[in-house]
Each structure stands twice: as structure tokens, then as C-alpha cells.
Amino acid sequence: MLINCAAYQDGKKLADISVADISNYVGRPDCFVWVALRDATEAELATMQQEFGLHELAIEDARHGHQRPKVEEYGDTLFAVVHTIEFGATDELRVGEVNIFVGRNFILSVRNRSTQHLLGVRERAEHEPHLLRHGAGYVFYALMDAVVDRYFPIIDALEGELESIEGQIFVRGSARANIEHLYELKRRIMTVRHAVTPLMESASKLWSGRVPGVCEGSREYFRDVYDHLVRINGTLDSLRDTIGTAIQVNLSMVTIEESETTKQLAAWAGIFAVATAFAGIWGMNFEHMPELKWRFGYPMALGTIVVACTLLYRRFKRLGWV
């Protein structure tokens, strides 16, 4: 579906144009066309391929989707894939995709499987004509920067979730739930990492070394995007290490809880073993047992068992076993 199609010259918007009029503007020397599509159909992609002379392989990637984040050169045209990440209705992370085609006099963005619109990027660029003069390369930076900036709230939410789980680690009886939450959090972090790490590698090619011609005038801006990605990647590494430590601590707490349970069972088993031993001795019914014919033998036997068990209980209580 077509979202926007407009022509720009010298940092200013000339007009909103129809797809049929694109060819009238892309040929002008200081003019570029900015087209935005959402969940584009094959017919729309075919039309854009014809209007901008896009490479068949790039169009095929955009048509099939589910591509790894990347930046590829096809002659004078760049093709970039950037992943969008957002929370779904059940707090699951949903991964979308923005395919961006950049040429000297055009830029085409195709947003798929994402509810996050990019209209704010166009408004921001139009309010900064001194930057928009850089042409399609600057718009490419603005789109990448907008997507990358939306990673930060996701990272903050993951950090907050990890802190909440850490606060429950030393709560007795929560070990299983903690481990489940930690592994779920680790899976989310890997989802974000799969979007960030490849894009970081690709973004480095847009500001260092041989930079594609369309990005030459915006080299320092792409370095800013790269710096943001490095920060995010470092935070993800830190979160992953913290999760590993939290899992180890949680497993240690499970071992400690099991050890305490074992000690409690052993203590009560020892107490009942003493009572059983006394009962077994006095239950032999030998004829010449000293207490067998004694009037107070039964109360004495019960009292001895109670005293012995009480002494053992107090001893185990002092040791913290019961």
C-alpha cells in the first residue's frame, strides 16, 4: 500500500506526486523522489522496479521478506534491510522489516509486518531543509536512525524485567519460575541481538573506508547510527552475562534449598530412629528384662523416649536443621 510519494529539491518539498509522475522528477539533476510503501504487493514492487531501475535480486529479497539485516550495493543503488522490533499484545517481541532502496535521485522504503509507522521521519526531514539538501543519502540515514532509536525502549524494558527477576532470586520457592523467566528473557535478548549485530556490521561500511557514493555526504551521520548500535550491542552483551550469572545463582539457591530439606529429613529421621530403638529394645519381651515386672516400667520407658527425642530435637534446632 502506498503511504507517501513526494518530490524534493534543494532541501524543500516540491509536491506530493502520483506514481505515474515519478519518471518526470527522477531525471532532474537536483531532485529526488521519496516513496514509502507498507506491505507492498508484487504489482507495486514491480512498478517501483520499473520506475527506479531496481535490481531483480533486491526486489526478490523485498518480495520474500524475512531477510537478515544487511546493506548491499547494486551498481549505484543501495539495498538495505533493517529489522523493527516491538512488543505485541502478550508482551512477545514482534519482528518486522524495512527494506530500503537508495539511489542518487530516489529513496524507496517498504515496511512489512510492523505497526510502527515512519511518518515522523518525513516530518523531521522536512523541518531540516539544510540537512535534506544532502538528498536521498540523508533520508536513508534518517530512516535507519529512527528504527535504531526504537531499540532503546526495548532494551530499557528488558533491563527492568531482569532487575525484577533478580529481586526474586532469593525468595524461597521461586526457583523454577525464575529460571523460566530468565530463559524467556534470554530468548528475547537474542531476538534483539539478531537485529542489531548484523546491522552494526553493515552500518560500519557506510562511514568508514570506501563509502557508497550516495552516502558520501552523510558519512558522519551514519557513524552516529553505528555508535548507537555499538552501545546497544554492548548492553545486550552485559544483559546476557548478567542472565548467565543469575541462572547460576538461582541453581545454587536450588541446591541450598535441597540441602536444607535433606538436613530436615535427616534430623527427623534421627529423632524417630532413637524412639524406634528404645521401643525395639523394650518390645523384645524377654522374661528376665529388669523393667518387665516393674510397676512403673512403662511410664519410665515412655519418659526416656520423650527425653531422648527432646534432647535430639533441641540439638538439631540449635544447628538449624529443624
Rank of each mutant, 00 (worst) to 15 (best):
Q9H: 09
G11K: 07
V19Y: 00
I22C: 01
S23R: 14
N24V: 07
N24S: 14
Y25M: 08
R28L: 12
D30N: 15
C31T: 15
T41F: 10
A43K: 14
A43E: 14
E44S: 04
L45I: 11
L45P: 06
A46L: 10
Q49W: 02
Q49I: 03
Q49C: 04
F52A: 02
L54T: 00
R63W: 10
H64R: 12
G65E: 12
L78R: 03
F79N: 03
A80C: 13
V82A: 13
V82K: 04
E86P: 09
G88P: 00
G88Y: 01
G88T: 02
A89P: 08
T90N: 13
E92F: 08
R94C: 09
R94L: 15
V98C: 11
V98F: 01
I100Y: 02
V102G: 07
V102A: 11
S109E: 05
V110I: 14
R111V: 09
T115W: 08
T115N: 12
L118S: 06
L119V: 11
G120E: 07
A125T: 07
A125N: 02
E126F: 05
E126C: 03
E128D: 12
A136Y: 00
Y138V: 05
L143D: 03
V147W: 13
D149H: 02
Y151N: 03
I154D: 04
I155F: 05
D156A: 13
L158M: 14
L162D: 05
L162W: 06
F170G: 00
S174Q: 15
H181A: 15
H181F: 06
E184H: 09
E184Q: 10
I189E: 05
H194D: 06
A195V: 00
V196F: 09
P198C: 01
M200T: 11
E201Q: 14
E201A: 09
S202T: 00
S202D: 00
A203Q: 03
K205V: 04
S208E: 11
S208C: 02
S218E: 07
Y221N: 06
F222S: 03
D227G: 11
N233T: 04
G234E: 12
T235V: 15
T242W: 10
I243S: 08
I243G: 09
G244M: 11
T245N: 15
T245H: 14
A246Q: 11
N250A: 03
M253Q: 15
I256C: 04
E257L: 03
E257D: 06
E258G: 02
S259Q: 11
S259I: 10
E260G: 03
T262A: 15
Q264V: 12
A267Y: 00
A267S: 10
W268Q: 04
A269Y: 13
A273T: 14
A275T: 11
T276V: 10
A277G: 09
A279V: 05
G283P: 04
G283R: 02
F286C: 10
F286T: 06
F286V: 13
H288C: 01
H288G: 06
P290V: 01
E291F: 14
L292W: 01
K293S: 11
G297P: 09
Y298F: 10
P299Y: 00
P299C: 01
C309Q: 08
T310Q: 06
L311D: 01
F316T: 01
F316V: 02
L319D: 08
L319G: 07
